[in-house]
Amino acid sequence: MRDRVVIGSPLHLLVLCCSFALAAYAGVRLLAGDWLGVALWVVGAAVLHDLVLLPLYAAADRAVVRGLDGIRRREWAMYVRVPAALSGLLLLVWFPLISSMVEARYRSATGLPPEVFLTRWLLITAALFGGSALLLAMRLLLLRRAAKRRPPAVH
Protein backbone atom coordinates (compact mmCIF):
# COMPACT_ATOMS: atom_id res chain seq x y z
CA MET A 1 0.00 0.00 0.00
CA ARG A 2 2.78 2.42 0.96
CA ASP A 3 4.48 1.99 -2.45
CA ARG A 4 1.26 2.92 -4.26
CA VAL A 5 1.05 6.16 -2.33
CA VAL A 6 4.62 7.14 -3.25
CA ILE A 7 4.40 6.18 -6.90
CA GLY A 8 0.83 7.26 -7.53
CA SER A 9 -1.63 6.00 -10.08
CA PRO A 10 -0.02 3.74 -12.70
CA LEU A 11 -2.57 4.99 -15.24
CA HIS A 12 -1.50 8.59 -14.60
CA LEU A 13 2.12 7.55 -15.01
CA LEU A 14 1.36 5.89 -18.32
CA VAL A 15 -0.49 8.93 -19.68
CA LEU A 16 2.31 11.25 -18.57
CA CYS A 17 5.05 9.07 -20.06
CA CYS A 18 3.25 9.01 -23.43
CA SER A 19 2.85 12.76 -23.25
CA PHE A 20 6.54 13.27 -22.41
CA ALA A 21 7.60 11.03 -25.29
CA LEU A 22 5.66 13.12 -27.81
CA ALA A 23 6.74 16.38 -26.17
CA ALA A 24 10.37 15.25 -26.32
CA TYR A 25 10.07 14.29 -30.01
CA ALA A 26 8.72 17.75 -30.86
CA GLY A 27 10.87 19.46 -28.23
CA VAL A 28 14.12 18.26 -29.76
CA ARG A 29 13.02 19.93 -33.01
CA LEU A 30 11.78 23.03 -31.23
CA LEU A 31 15.17 23.41 -29.54
CA ALA A 32 17.20 22.54 -32.68
CA GLY A 33 18.05 26.18 -33.41
CA ASP A 34 18.60 28.68 -30.61
CA TRP A 35 17.90 26.16 -27.86
CA LEU A 36 18.71 28.51 -25.00
CA GLY A 37 16.57 31.28 -26.44
CA VAL A 38 13.59 28.98 -26.98
CA ALA A 39 13.91 27.36 -23.55
CA LEU A 40 14.09 30.82 -21.98
CA TRP A 41 10.95 31.85 -23.86
CA VAL A 42 8.96 28.76 -22.83
CA VAL A 43 10.00 28.80 -19.17
CA GLY A 44 10.11 32.60 -19.12
CA ALA A 45 6.53 32.83 -20.39
CA ALA A 46 5.29 30.70 -17.49
CA VAL A 47 7.47 32.50 -14.91
CA LEU A 48 6.62 36.00 -16.16
CA HIS A 49 2.93 35.19 -16.14
CA ASP A 50 2.79 33.45 -12.77
CA LEU A 51 5.28 35.56 -10.85
CA VAL A 52 5.03 38.99 -12.50
CA LEU A 53 1.84 39.61 -14.50
CA LEU A 54 -0.57 37.83 -12.16
CA PRO A 55 0.81 39.35 -8.91
CA LEU A 56 0.84 42.77 -10.58
CA TYR A 57 -2.80 42.75 -11.64
CA ALA A 58 -3.86 41.07 -8.39
CA ALA A 59 -2.08 43.81 -6.43
CA ALA A 60 -3.66 46.52 -8.59
CA ASP A 61 -7.05 44.95 -8.03
CA ARG A 62 -6.48 44.73 -4.29
CA ALA A 63 -5.46 48.39 -4.21
CA VAL A 64 -8.71 49.35 -5.95
CA VAL A 65 -10.84 47.27 -3.59
CA ARG A 66 -8.99 48.64 -0.52
CA GLY A 67 -9.36 52.17 -1.81
CA LEU A 68 -13.10 51.67 -2.25
CA ASP A 69 -13.30 49.99 1.17
CA GLY A 70 -11.72 53.17 2.55
CA ILE A 71 -14.67 55.22 1.31
CA ARG A 72 -17.16 52.41 2.07
CA ARG A 73 -17.97 51.83 -1.58
CA ARG A 74 -16.82 48.25 -2.09
CA GLU A 75 -19.80 47.57 -4.36
CA TRP A 76 -18.29 49.97 -6.94
CA ALA A 77 -15.38 47.59 -7.58
CA MET A 78 -16.72 46.17 -10.82
CA TYR A 79 -17.27 49.64 -12.25
CA VAL A 80 -13.52 50.25 -12.01
CA ARG A 81 -12.36 46.70 -12.56
CA VAL A 82 -14.20 45.99 -15.83
CA PRO A 83 -13.04 49.01 -17.87
CA ALA A 84 -9.51 48.82 -16.43
CA ALA A 85 -9.17 45.10 -17.14
CA LEU A 86 -10.61 45.35 -20.65
CA SER A 87 -8.39 48.27 -21.55
CA GLY A 88 -5.37 46.50 -20.06
CA LEU A 89 -6.25 43.35 -21.96
CA LEU A 90 -6.32 45.19 -25.29
CA LEU A 91 -2.99 46.82 -24.44
CA LEU A 92 -1.46 43.46 -23.50
CA VAL A 93 -2.55 41.75 -26.72
CA TRP A 94 -1.84 44.59 -29.17
CA PHE A 95 1.14 46.11 -27.36
CA PRO A 96 3.54 46.01 -30.34
CA LEU A 97 1.07 47.96 -32.50
CA ILE A 98 -0.18 50.34 -29.80
CA SER A 99 3.31 51.17 -28.54
CA SER A 100 4.60 51.73 -32.11
CA MET A 101 7.35 49.17 -31.51
CA VAL A 102 6.92 47.88 -35.06
CA GLU A 103 6.01 51.23 -36.62
CA ALA A 104 8.58 51.27 -39.44
CA ARG A 105 8.14 47.65 -40.48
CA TYR A 106 4.35 47.82 -40.27
CA ARG A 107 4.11 50.95 -42.43
CA SER A 108 6.60 49.70 -44.98
CA ALA A 109 5.16 46.16 -45.25
CA THR A 110 1.42 46.83 -45.24
CA GLY A 111 1.16 50.40 -46.55
CA LEU A 112 -1.13 51.15 -43.60
CA PRO A 113 -0.68 53.95 -41.03
CA PRO A 114 0.71 52.55 -37.72
CA GLU A 115 -0.10 55.59 -35.57
CA VAL A 116 -3.87 54.87 -35.55
CA PHE A 117 -3.57 52.08 -32.98
CA LEU A 118 -2.59 54.26 -30.03
CA THR A 119 -5.40 56.70 -30.83
CA ARG A 120 -7.96 53.92 -31.16
CA TRP A 121 -6.87 52.22 -27.96
CA LEU A 122 -7.10 55.50 -26.05
CA LEU A 123 -10.57 56.14 -27.47
CA ILE A 124 -11.75 52.63 -26.61
CA THR A 125 -10.35 53.08 -23.10
CA ALA A 126 -12.14 56.40 -22.75
CA ALA A 127 -15.37 54.83 -23.97
CA LEU A 128 -15.02 51.92 -21.51
CA PHE A 129 -14.43 54.16 -18.48
CA GLY A 130 -17.01 56.67 -19.67
CA GLY A 131 -19.63 53.95 -20.16
CA SER A 132 -18.85 52.48 -16.76
CA ALA A 133 -19.12 55.88 -15.07
CA LEU A 134 -22.46 56.45 -16.79
CA LEU A 135 -23.79 53.08 -15.59
CA LEU A 136 -22.65 53.83 -12.04
CA ALA A 137 -24.25 57.28 -12.14
CA MET A 138 -27.52 55.77 -13.35
CA ARG A 139 -27.42 53.14 -10.65
CA LEU A 140 -26.81 55.76 -7.96
CA LEU A 141 -29.65 57.88 -9.31
CA LEU A 142 -32.05 54.93 -9.24
CA LEU A 143 -30.98 54.04 -5.71
CA ARG A 144 -31.51 57.63 -4.54
CA ARG A 145 -34.98 57.73 -6.09
CA ALA A 146 -35.90 54.43 -4.51
CA ALA A 147 -34.68 55.75 -1.15
CA LYS A 148 -36.75 58.94 -1.51
CA ARG A 149 -39.88 57.01 -2.36
CA ARG A 150 -39.55 54.93 0.77
CA PRO A 151 -41.47 56.37 3.74
CA PRO A 152 -39.15 57.65 6.50
CA ALA A 153 -40.81 55.28 9.01
CA VAL A 154 -38.96 52.36 7.45
CA HIS A 155 -35.61 53.69 8.69
Binding site: L30, G33, V38, W41, P96, V102
Partner: peptide, 21 residues
Protein backbone atom coordinates in the same frame (compact mmCIF):
# COMPACT_ATOMS: atom_id res chain seq x y z
CA UNK B 1 0.45 38.78 -36.65
CA UNK B 2 1.77 42.17 -35.52
CA UNK B 3 4.99 41.68 -37.51
CA UNK B 4 6.98 41.81 -34.27
CA UNK B 5 9.55 39.15 -35.03
CA UNK B 6 11.38 39.20 -31.69
CA UNK B 7 11.03 35.48 -30.97
CA UNK B 8 14.19 33.34 -31.07
CA UNK B 9 14.02 31.91 -34.58
CA UNK B 10 11.70 31.64 -37.56
CA UNK B 11 8.00 31.73 -36.74
CA UNK B 12 7.04 28.60 -38.68
CA UNK B 13 9.19 26.00 -36.88
CA UNK B 14 8.74 27.68 -33.48
CA UNK B 15 4.94 27.81 -33.70
CA UNK B 16 4.67 24.35 -35.30
CA UNK B 17 6.97 22.37 -32.98
CA UNK B 18 5.82 24.47 -30.02
CA UNK B 19 2.25 23.46 -30.83
CA UNK B 20 3.16 19.77 -30.63
CA UNK B 21 4.96 20.18 -27.29
Amino acid sequence: VQLDYVFPGSFYPLHFYGAWV
